[in-house]
Nucleic acid binder design. Structure first.
Lengths: 218, 218
DNA sequence: CTGGTTTCGCTACGGGTCGTAGCGTAACTG
DNA sequence: CAGTTACGCTACGACCCGTAGCGAAACCAG
């Protein structure tokens, strides 16, 4: 009972309850998600048809509907798989270089044709779907944010940033919104490239501005 | 010949060619665009049906299709109308205050329920539609960008920013991506409020970082 | 007033996608 | 072996899309 709560790409909870009957094909999961990404890249969100995805994956349409409730959930999982791997970022030695690295890594993901069309569309749908919003947060946003927090901790250890005794989540949120939002806007709206030079400028702007945050107002 | 090239909300080119026959109802245009915004706010992009929009507007479905090619174009015009009015921004006396004002004005538009769901969805669709991308640029993006450029010019006149002899469009683009992108990300992804305090922090970060842009690399 | 032109509302339609039901078969478990 | 669950397949009603065709309405030139 209660189907398509699986979302295998997000949370395969190793519940100890012995499952009986024929197990779900993990190969089918992978084929469906890959077919979803292919179709997204070729046709975009608007033209994406689940029947077509099932056909591409070599799977019956009913099989797809047994695992995902609809277009939104399927696409979130398909895209989230791209964000899964890269959870770490090499220490590049300075806050400036770390920000530059994070920016380039973000852009690397967002510039993919599958991600471009899917990410914005799913966020738009999430406006009227609380569950979808949480799913996006867990599967995508929090993973991005982790990289930003990682960079801040390193900078504090290096002494580049004042290590306040108390955490400042509001400032973390702001920095994250600036980095992620700027990259997304650059790619999606301005349609400009995110190359090393652009990333350097953004990093310089941020590092220069970070010091001004805790100063008293003039 | 060549229907729905009108887009009356964007460009009513006063072609001197005398039009004969029954003129198009301007009231119908307004009713359709308003009905589109209402339906967007209530149901979101995904559930938006053009037949429903026509019914809300008290207009035949065929009338709607004579003026707009499809969902994408209609929604762009419906949203663009919200961006039309506010082309100016009062001079608040300092770069810091001006940025704060621009941020609050952006948020004011983006936080509306119609805009939230429509803006992202249309940008997603524009990934595979060059004409739509240009339409969005003309109707929405350039108007936002104008505010940012206006703030920069004022700051240069005040002497807050060095008035280079040569313009630096790359820097303007960066600043615009930072402001607009950060606000959008804050509202759409982080789901956080854009209040005066948050705007103040972002403005402080930007003003602090602007000076570092033209320094030689360490 | 008359004829020409364009828009309007209305109805109807083919085509595509959605999401589900039903059935027989395949895979795995005790 | 029996029990259980997933699978492929077909079929279906429901919905929305976008267009065609019609007669009526609104405007303009003569």
């Amino acid at each position: 009972m209660d189907p398509h709560t699986s979302s295998p790409a997000v949370a395969p909870p190793g519940r100890p309850g012995k499952r009986t009957g024929r197990p779900r094909s993990a190969a089918a999961d992978r084929a469906i998600l890959q077919a979803t990404r292919d179709a997204l890249a070729e046709q975009g969100w608007g033209q994406l048809a689940l029947g077509d995805v099932a056909a591409r994956a070599g799977v019956a349409k009913t099989t797809l509907y047994r695992r995902w409730a609809g277009k939104n959930e399927l696409v979130v999982d398909a895209i989230a798989a791209l964000f899964e791997e890269q959870l770490e970022l090499p220490d590049l030695g300075s806050l400036d270089a770390d920000i530059e690295g994070v920016v380039l890594r973000f852009a690397e993901l967002i510039e993919r044709p599958e991600t471009r069309t899917a990410l914005m569309a799913v966020v738009a749908e999430a406006t009227h779907d609380e569950a979808l919003r949480l799913r996006i947060r867990d599967a995508i946003v929090d993973r991005q944010k982790h990289l930003v927090l990682l960079g801040r901790e390193r900078a504090q250890q290096r002494g580049e940033l004042a290590a306040d005794g108390v955490a400042d989540p509001a400032r973390d949120d702001l920095i994250f919104d600036v980095i992620a939002g700027t990259v997304v806007h650059r790619v999606m709206v301005s349609s400009g490239p995110v190359d090393r030079e652009w990333a350097r400028q953004l990093a310089r702007l941020l590092v220069g501005g970070l010091g001004a945050l805790h100063l008293p107002p003039p």
